[in-house]
Nucleic acid binder design. Sequence first.
DNA 1: GCCAACGTTGGC
DNA 2: GCCAACGTTGGC
Length: 154
Amino acid sequence: MNYWLFKSEPEEFSLDDLKNAKARRDHWDGVRNYQARNFMRSMKKGDQGFFYHSNCPEPGIVGIVEICREAYPDHTAFDPNDKHFDPKSDPENPRWFMVDVRYKRRLKRLISLQELKEYADSELAGLALVRRGNRLSVLPVSKPHWNFILKLER
DNA sequence: GCCAACGTTGGC
DNA sequence: GCCAACGTTGGC
């Protein structure tokens, strides 16, 4: 099993929005970055992910989700009225993909970016999230990093 | 709202 | 293939 981290602006789509969605699951659309797309295409059903709130008063990890459907074409790229429309993505040869994720649980407390950064040069060295200038919206988390972050929760 | 960091685009 | 211009992300 592999581990990931999904960023979302809570004003756009929060952990609670996912929790309140039908069957507590939804598709993760709108990713328009090749590296993030490639990560999504390598996700397997059952993989786990952190749900991270970005661009908000207290950025940090708020919950855990599970991949419940593997990558398939992101249809929002074909819709001219969609915010993430990309005329270069052809339905015959889609450029962008998405996965479905299911809400698992909320963390007992928010683990802030600030707190995670304290370990950027030790336990969490190499974690893409705490590397300077990182802008990836979907990124991998190693198993040791995953376990370490879960230990911080307590 | 500012701005640093980064990815993408397109002229050459 | 280089690189300047531009757009976006996201912390602060």
